[in-house]
């Protein structure tokens, strides 16, 4: 009795969470302007409309560039910070770690406002660079957590072996540490990209006027009308934010099978 209640309850919770998503995806292929079931026919016209919608495409490009840059910067900084924290005796190690991880713990709105006020106080206006900085601060903890966890599992003596064989510290990093760290680096970069691509709260505060990312674009489109184009855009977002990590995981598994790890 107990278990069947729990099972039914669990199923209901998942339905509640995922049904709207499923509805959005389904309706994005609907022929009819007005979403209603049963659907009247299958069509890609809303995707086509998206493709021809300049504002959406601009937002899409902005999101893509922002996500890629965030991933690049966040991953680079995250790897460097993790290396310093794990491999070297940095004074105040625990404090630095806490500060770097803190953005996860602070509510996003608070973080967003704080950064904005701080930059106002410095007399720096909103800009794409600020938006990027915000996304980097926000995604950095994820990268650091993932990379650090992997780094502690890489034995120091493997790096020492490389050094003894004549590789300089930099050569050792690129030929031994980084390849062994790669799964975590890739995961961190994917995390950073998806989080940045998905983010709306911070972005709404930080973005300069006239710049829209996909989430803020959807948000502003919703204020005017409920167009089926939004369903299509939602579907594209889902494909990117769910599909990318899955793809990454699959590639990582392929590589590790090849090495027998």
């Amino acid at each position: 009795m107990g278990w069947s209640v729990i099972r039914a309850y669990t199923i209901l919770v998942y339905l509640f969470m995922f049904l709207p998503v499923a509805v959005v995806v389904l309706l994005s292929f609907n022929q009819n302007q007005f979403g209603s079931f049963p659907m009247t026919g299958f069509s890609l016209r809303w995707f086509e409309a998206l493709w021809n919608n300049d504002a959406v495409m601009r937002a899409f490009r902005t999101s893509l560039v922002l996500g890629l840059l965030t991933a690049l910067i966040s991953t680079t900084l995250g790897v460097l910070a993790s290396l310093a924290l794990v491999r070297y005796a940095v004074p105040g190690k625990n404090l630095i770690t806490t500060i770097l991880i803190a953005p996860i713990l602070v509510p996003e709105v608070v973080l967003a406002v704080a950064l904005l006020l701080f930059l106002n106080w410095l007399g720096i206006g909103k800009s794409f660079a600020l938006l990027l900085a915000g996304h980097v601060i926000f995604t950095l903890p994820f990268v650091i957590l993932v990379v650090q966890a992997r780094l502690v599992s890489i034995r120091r003596d493997v790096e020492e072996a490389a050094l003894s064989l004549g590789a300089s510290p930099v050569q050792t990093f690129f030929s031994v540490t980084l390849p062994l760290l790669m799964p975590a680096v890739a995961a961190g970069a994917l995390f950073a990209f998806t989080i940045s691509f998905d983010d709306i709260t911070g972005t709404l505060f930080w973005k300069p006027g006239g710049v829209e990312t996909v989430p803020t674009q959807i948000f502003s489109m919703l204020r005017n009308s409920i167009s089926p184009e939004i369903n299509a855009l939602g579907t594209v977002m889902i494909i990117i934010t769910v599909g990318l990590p899955l793809l990454g995981a699959a590639i990582a598994r392929k590589i590790s099978i090849k090495r027998g790890m």
């Binding site: 034995r155 493997v158 020492e160 003894s164 031994v176 090495r259």
Partner: peptide, 17 residues
């Protein structure tokens, strides 16, 4: 160390996986 031209062998082999 990387300029000393030494061979180093560890207890746990330390091969590059």
């Amino acid at each position: 160390i990387y300029k000393r031209n030494l061979g180093l062998v560890f207890q746990n082999y330390a091969l590059f996986p």
